[in-house]
Design a protein around this nucleic acid. Structure first.
Lengths: 210, 210
DNA sequence: GATGTTAAATTAATCTCATTAATTTCCTCG
DNA sequence: CGAGGAAATTAATGAGATTAATTTAACATC
């Protein structure tokens, strides 16, 4: 019972990331223990060290997997609104919020200081989140092609919008959103998206004004 | 050397919060150890338990102190722009960003899930951050009195703006802001405030349009 | 097929904290 | 002065991460 037979081998690295994500539905990242993950995977804690440098590294891998998942969902949404750029922007924002609501623990991990693990590589280029930002930037460029948000660098606007939506998600997950009464906590966050869309709509010089 | 003489007593609870804040300038909250704090204060770790239920509670106290500090700074800024509501809003946002830049560790702690410690009391009402939001809401009401952002609930707008500025600060502190080249990381965040002010300016029905 | 070598886990051993228990020292009040 | 409580301290416990030592399977070579 030291080394497993070939037929009962487990793909430890993959399972570890999966199971950690699952655990994040229940507990916060800080509370997750390697023994827990190992138990869920079907091995002992030290076995994880063969595939991850340590707890931090495992969490970092989950962090990255989270961004890949988010990107997938956003791509799917974008595909459904390939034409209408404004709709794409709104639906993208709402999809983002949905993601945060459905995976609160994972979302928090994705936006916690990845600690230590970020020094080795480029600060932003290699980050898994960069893909999401790039995608948002394209959506904004499409809006600009229709006359919205004229004369501003798309990258800057992308950062503004991402900031707002991420900020909303983050505040909601901390219970810091004003909850109107009996409503879903995410309602306030959806309101942020609505406000932003309104701002964008008004940014077009000539038509579309009350 | 068990109990200190009256003349060499320390105000442990106050010093502990102070020193923890100081430590946060260097390390992230997760890395701070009670022994470290105790050493900085001038006592041993178990002494802290007489004043804080545990590590979490100490961190929570620091979290609250952080919000009080932030509120102070914002009040000072507001006082300097008692008239011009739009300026007050912009300067408030920039002051917020400055705070985050100057106290990155503290800021992260303030916006980390306070974990466990939030169940006992009201989710939002008693929170130290509520004061900041309330203040923002007043500033917005003042802008509305001048015709900006007409017909929207001030609370909703306040949440949108707070989300955007907090999101920007949060992303910058994680190195997730696009840094234009050689510029300060906070430049991108300042750009967010500029964008928001622009949106607000355009929200007034009649005048003030290119 | 026996056998040495590498691989992949396991259990045992360390180390670093947080937290709790036992002790010590000082102050205050009679 | 002596008793009792207050405020720390040192000693003990326990959870978890990490590392060392050990075990067993798979493979290649003879």
């Amino acid at each position: 019972m030291a080394r497993p037979r070939k037929d009962q081998q487990i793909d430890i690295p993959a399972r570890a990331v999966e199971e950690t994500m699952r655990l994040l539905d229940t507990q916060e990242a800080a509370a997750i223990t390697l023994a827990q993950v190992a138990a869920a995977v079907g091995c002992r804690a030290p076995a994880l060290y063969a595939y991850f440098a340590g707890r931090e590294a495992l969490l970092r891998a989950v962090h990255d997997a989270g961004f890949r998942l988010l990107l997938e969902e956003k791509l799917a949404v974008a595909a459904r609104h390939a034409d209408a750029p404004l709709d794409r922007l709104r639906e993208g924002g709402l999809a983002y919020l949905r993601f945060a609501a459905e995976h609160p623990g994972l979302y928090r991990l994705m936006f916690s200081p990845p600690a230590g693990a970020d020094l080795p590589d480029d600060p932003f280029a290699t980050d898994a989140g960069a893909g999401c930002l790039a995608m948002l930037e394209r959506a904004i460029a499409a809006c600009q092609a229709e006359g919205y948000l004229p004369g501003r660098p798309a990258a800057q606007v992308a950062f503004t919008l991402w900031s707002a939506v991420h900020g909303a998600a983050s505040l909601v997950l901390q219970g810091r959103a004003p909850v109107p009464a009996g409503q879903d906590a995410m309602a306030a966050a959806a309101g942020v998206v609505a406000d932003l869309m309104d701002f964008i709509r008004r940014s077009r010089p000539s038509p579309d004004r009350p």
